[in-house]
Design a protein around this nucleic acid. Structure first.
Length: 161
DNA sequence: GCCAACGTTGGC
DNA sequence: GCCAACGTTGGC
């Protein structure tokens, strides 16, 4: 069992749930993940205290808008039992839940987003999954170095203002 | 709105 | 277990 802190990138469409929504609510259950790879990251690898790059997808421009942290480990995703929810899944039962979600808490909103384009322009960040073509996973692991480098980019921007 | 890149489903 | 058809994601 790893004790070292892990880093992640989590995508959300701002029209559905933005960094401002998280800032207002302070914490949220990350419901609606219906991809096994993403689910497995939440179930197996995410720990309370892990830090998260909050990413706006389908946005103009798309990019990292702030920082969040994992505040509760994975639990069965309540939205898969809700017939009215777009995330309802009749194959998921209370006895054998198929989908899980973690709780994510607000940490910080960047004064200015780090756009996908800027990330692509940094040779340092070329291994980040988010810049790779066809990488659609909504939850991605992030290397510590890349996480820190991105924070540095955010603080440089801050200082410039 | 388009479409490439995937992931999932279901017939066989 | 293969694979075609279909659905989704998400940048552009």
């Amino acid at each position: 069992m790893a004790t070292k802190k892990n880093y992640w990138l989590m995508k959300s469409e701002p029209e559905t749930f933005s960094i401002d929504d998280l800032s207002r609510d302070q914490s949220t259950l990350w419901e609606g993940v219906r991809n096994y790879q993403a689910r497995n990251f939440m179930m197996k690898d995410m720990k309370v205290g892990d830090e998260v790059l909050f990413y706006h997808s389908n946005a103009q421009p798309p990019g990292v808008v702030g920082i969040a942290k994992i505040s509760k480990k994975a639990q069965p995703d309540p939205s898969c039992y809700d017939k009215k929810s777009p995330y309802f899944d009749k194959k998921s039962t209370k006895q054998i839940p198929r989908w899980f979600c973690v709780e994510v808490s607000f940490k910080q909103k960047f004064p200015e987003l780090i756009s996908l384009d800027e990330i692509k322009q940094e040779p340092q960040l070329k291994d980040m999954l988010v810049v790779k073509k066809g990488q659609r996973l909504s939850i991605q692991p992030v290397a510590e170095n890349d996480f820190l480098y991105l924070l540095e980019m955010a603080s440089v921007k801050m200082a410039r203002e």
